[in-house]
Design a protein around this nucleic acid. Structure first.
Length: 651
DNA sequence: ATAGCACCAT
């Protein structure tokens, strides 16, 4: 794969082209020209192209020239970074920083291009000419609103400015659409700016404007700023309404500040026109949801009963919240009761209702029952969506029912739903766990055929599966493959490979990988080091293991119990009581007992037993170890699941 | 009709 940046036209638009062929500069120009004509109905100015290329030719010793030669037919627009894979290009290390600098410079230009292109597309929708200035107000406004609903605020603002430039001011509702789109995109600075502009130039913000902006701040977890706005909007002549109240109460509930939510509610209700008694169903639903989620089922039920008593006409959402609430408190039976209540009251369950139940059943390991709900859902005319299938397929795969899971995937495809990457990944993992790496790889291919791009999880899952089957060479070639697809191995990838090398006792490869991690700019974590410690310890190089262990502790890296366990096991095996006991003391000081699981527990006790056998140790020491492990809060571990990491490393 | 509540997540 090759990368090329091209500058075109006075607006400094850069296109990045990727391909693997070999072409001349003219063919590049031809290609860019065609793209440009598509987008702008105009020819690009190539003088600038040539100028840019020559400007950068000094700092791009071979990369750019190489790439100019190799841009070919199957050009496609890409935005990712690609490393040069072509042999003979020795300076690939040098070219990347240059691209990074260029990328930064060009980002804005690319955004601009995107925005203009989006605008063109929406313009085409209404059958209006892009270049015509005589488009009427209604059409412009309608395009802006459409763009906002499609999540393209940049293009919408561009068009809004164009209107204002022509002395036509969009109304407040259209402005609100823009503020809303910006908030949904997390662009709070821009949203805030638009609202300031509105205050200054008009149209004056209304209550919906402030509500939208407040909601935006809440979405980025800046509830304080939202509350600020709330307290100042009155001064600007806009009174809060019920929606304002719901936005803020919801935000506070989400933060777990239920008391604050109630207080605020009181305050708003006291100060405002809407009456307290006939409190709104939505507000109550929000609060009920908040209490359910905080684990206070009793208080949640008080809200529910209040709502009933007040004679509020319930709605599907209120029922869904209650059903979800009981699922949270692991009371699916009660959830079912509320479901039947819901049906009796004449409300039809929707996708939320069914998905809530499916989720609870899957988490409870009752996958067959979840499948039953899926069938009910379909028969009731509610189409299962990505979420329904996601839960069912992952749950089935975890439980080992991969065949059943792939049937569900098939029915998704039959319903013309293209599964999200996570669903494919679950299935790939399912086959990997079953030891069928071939099938796992073929699912990956199938995924790609459906146009779903394998992501870092896909590769890590595959690499994990291959390593588990001892196919380390294949795992490494998969790592190469991800690079050629523009995906960089992450720390998980490396830890898998380090683990594989260590498992083979191949400390040299493990250390090489460790260096590669550093070269890539990642920081090895506790998993990486634990693998290395395990490897040293396995090879009998206990001194090396101890040295590394001491280094980790000195480095201040967050540490867990696994390295302790490895060394402890080693000492116990060697019958090195003193070292084992010292380590145990450190272990207690660092409070890892609370992280201990059943498995570790048994191992440690076995170790103590073994030490007793070997050394006939005095009862005080031996007893104290055994005792502190068996008593206190640690007695309750029997039912806990053992994390994979403990099993794999400690086994 | 511009703003408010519910489901998932390798």
């Amino acid at each position: 794969m090759q990368t090329l940046l091209i500058a075109t036209e006075e607006s400094h638009i850069f296109l990045r082209l990727v391909n693997g062929g070999s072409q001349t500069l003219d063919s590049i120009k031809d290609f860019v020209g065609r793209i440009f004509a598509d987008v702008f109905c105009r020819k690009p100015n190539f003088d600038l192209v040539d100028q840019r290329i020559s400007e950068h030719s000094g700092i791009l010793p071979c990369a750019l020239q190489d790439m100019i030669e190799t841009v070919g037919d199957q050009c496609q627009l890409r935005t990712k970074n690609w490393f040069s894979q072509r042999k003979g290009c020795n300076n690939k290390g040098d070219s990347q920083p240059v691209f990074n600098v260029l990328d930064t410079m060009l980002k804005d230009s690319l955004d601009r291009l995107k925005m203009m292109r989006e605008c063109c597309i929406s313009w085409a929708h209404v059958g209006s000419s892009f270049c015509s200035l005589e488009t009427n107000y209604t059409q412009h406004v309608s395009i802006i609103r459409t763009l906002c609903l499609e999540g393209k605020p940049g293009a919408a603002i561009w068009l809004k400015n164009k209107m204002i430039h022509n002395d036509v001011i969009p109304d407040v509702i259209t402005h609100n659409y823009i503020v809303n789109a910006l908030c949904k995109a997390g662009e709070l600075k821009k949203a805030d700016w638009i609202v300031s502009e509105m205050s200054y130039w008009g149209p004056s913000p209304n209550c919906a404007t402030y509500n939208t902006l407040m909601k935006g701040y809440c979405l980025v977890d800046d509830v304080d700023r939202a509350l600020d706005l709330f307290s100042t909007m009155g001064n600007r002549g806009v009174m809060p309404n019920r929606v304002t109240c719901n936005v803020l109460v919801h935000a506070l509930c989400k933060k777990g500040l239920l008391e604050d939510a109630l207080n605020l509610l009181e305050e708003i209700l006291d100060d405002n026109f809407f009456d307290k008694e006939n409190s709104n169903l939505i507000t109550s639903t929000i609060l009920m949801d908040g209490y359910f989620k905080s684990g206070d089922t009793m208080q949640a039920l008080i809200f529910w009963n209040d709502m009933i008593q007040r004679g509020s006409q319930m709605d599907v959402i209120a029922y869904n919240v209650a059903i979800h609430g009981f699922c949270l408190s692991q009371d699916v039976t009660v959830a079912y009761q509320y479901l039947s209540e819901m049906l009796k009251s004449g409300f039809l369950p929707d996708a939320f209702t069914y998905n809530t139940l499916i989720s609870a059943l899957c988490k409870d390991g009752r996958t067959d029952e979840a499948c039953y709900i899926h069938s009910v859902m379909s028969r009731m005319g509610v189409s299962p969506d990505q979420i329904s299938y996601k839960m069912l397929i992952t749950s089935l795969c975890i439980q080992g029912y991969v065949m059943k899971a792939s049937e569900f995937l098939l029915s998704m495809l039959e319903s013309s739903i293209v599964p999200e990457p996570v669903i494919w990944n679950a299935l790939i993992d399912g086959y990997g766990r079953a030891g069928d790496t071939e099938k796992a790889l073929s699912i990956r291919d199938q995924m790609a055929e459906f146009g779903v791009v394998p992501n870092i999880f896909t590769y890590n899952i595959l690499i994990h599966a291959l390593i588990k089957e001892g196919k380390i060479v294949e795992a490494h070639s998969l790592k190469k493959e991800m690079l050629s697809n523009g995906l960089f191995p992450d720390l998980v990838t490396y830890n898998l490979l380090v683990g594989a090398a260590c498992g083979n006792g191949d400390i040299r490869s493990a250390l090489q990988l460790h260096d590669e991690i550093l070269r890539r700019g990642y920081n090895p974590d506790i998993v990486t080091y634990t693998e290395l410690i395990k490897c040293y310890s396995m090879k009998g190089k206990v001194m090396e293991a101890e040295k590394l262990f001491a280094n980790i502790r000195r480095s201040g890296l967050p540490i867990d119990h696994v390295p302790f366990l490895i060394l402890m096991k080693k000492y116990c095996k060697r019958g090195d009581l003193n070292m084992a006991f010292d380590l145990y003391q450190v272990w207690c000081i660092m409070d890892f007992i609370s992280h201990t699981t059943t498995h570790l527990f048994i191992l440690a006790v076995n170790a103590v037993e073994r030490m007793k056998q070997l050394y006939c140790i005095d009862m005080v020491t031996g007893h104290s170890i055994g005792c502190s492990l068996w008593t206190g809060s640690h007695g309750g571990f029997a039912g806990l699941l053992v994390p994979t990491r403990t099993l794999e490393l400690a086994a």
